[in-house]
């Protein structure tokens, strides 16, 4: 088995001519927690979507456990199902992810599309609702929930498939302190389960808690990489990447 979950080599991607990622190379080792840092628009979300095989690079290559991730591979149901089961993406905006009429339907959506047996789905959804402490919301419409509740439902809807890789886009953004600490506690609990995490975030103060490695992006290019302690110590690099305010 390959040591790296993902290997990206010289990946570039642009939206209608605007460069979002430029010559990005990186590896994501199995079981590690990688934080993607950078200001708004630096390419963090695009990189997550490339790792989730929702976008495919204009140039360069992406490998998952050594196998190339290309659009052609996703034409095959077996490959697509196996990948979607093993790699989960939690979007930054929960409203994007919560499109079903009830919380129960939302959490059941992924397993249903992957063809799990119906009885197993009912049981697993109930367990997931209990685990995320949202069992009392099961018949509620997602658009009636608070921000923290929506985030937990979004996490449950992805985590129910027990992915080995969890990609999180700004998981603590716009949450109240209590919801934020609940999400951080959840992320810390996944470490013992051997999950590989890739987390896009602005929250430098959470870095030491949620990440083993960091990658700083600036205008689609890699501006720095290292452990949280190394990254936080490099003030000039953080300043260049617009991650801290210049001293007055």
């Amino acid at each position: 088995m390959a040591v790296n979950v993902f290997e990206l080599e010289r990946v570039s991607f642009s939206y209608r001519g605007v460069t979002a990622l430029d010559d990005v190379s990186l590896t994501v080792p199995t079981g590690r927690r990688l934080a993607l840092l950078g200001a708004n628009g630096c390419g963090k979300s695009t990189l997550l979507r490339i790792l989730a095989a929702l976008y495919f690079p204009d140039s360069g290559s992406v490998r998952y456990h050594g196998a190339p991730l290309t659009e052609a591979e996703f034409e095959h149901d077996s490959f697509s199902h196996a990948f979607r089961k093993r790699v989960g993406l939690v979007f930054q905006n929960p409203d994007v992810q919560l499109f079903c009429p009830t919380v129960f339907d939302e959490v059941a959506f992924g397993p249903l599309q992957l063809g799990w047996p119906k009885e197993r789905i009912r049981q697993t959804v109930n367990e997931a609702l209990d685990y995320f402490e949202i069992a009392d919301l099961r018949e509620r419409a997602p658009h009636r929930l608070s921000g923290g509740e929506k985030k937990r439902v979004a996490l449950a809807s992805v985590l129910i498939m027990d992915p080995e890789v969890i990609l999180l886009d700004e998981p603590t953004a716009a949450l109240d302190p209590r919801s934020q600490s609940q999400i951080v506690a959840l992320m810390k609990s996944w470490e013992s389960l051997g999950k590989t995490l890739v987390i896009a975030t602005h929250d430098l103060h959470l870095l030491t808690e949620i990440a083993d490695d960091c990658l700083v992006l600036d205008k689609g290019r890699i501006a720095g990489r290292g452990t949280p302690a190394e990254i936080l110590a490099d003030e000039s690099m953080l300043l260049r990447a617009n991650l801290i305010r210049p001293a007055c």
Binding site: D77, S80, H81, R84, F91, V96, F99, F109, R122, V158
Partner: peptide, 23 residues
């Protein structure tokens, strides 16, 4: 923009053009 993102979110959870629902 949202409709594109919702489609991606569906794809990320295994949607492949046909919606399956519980009986």
């Amino acid at each position: 923009e949202l409709s594109g993102d919702v489609h991606l979110a569906m794809q990320a959870r295994g949607y492949r053009g046909e919606v399956h629902v519980l009986d």
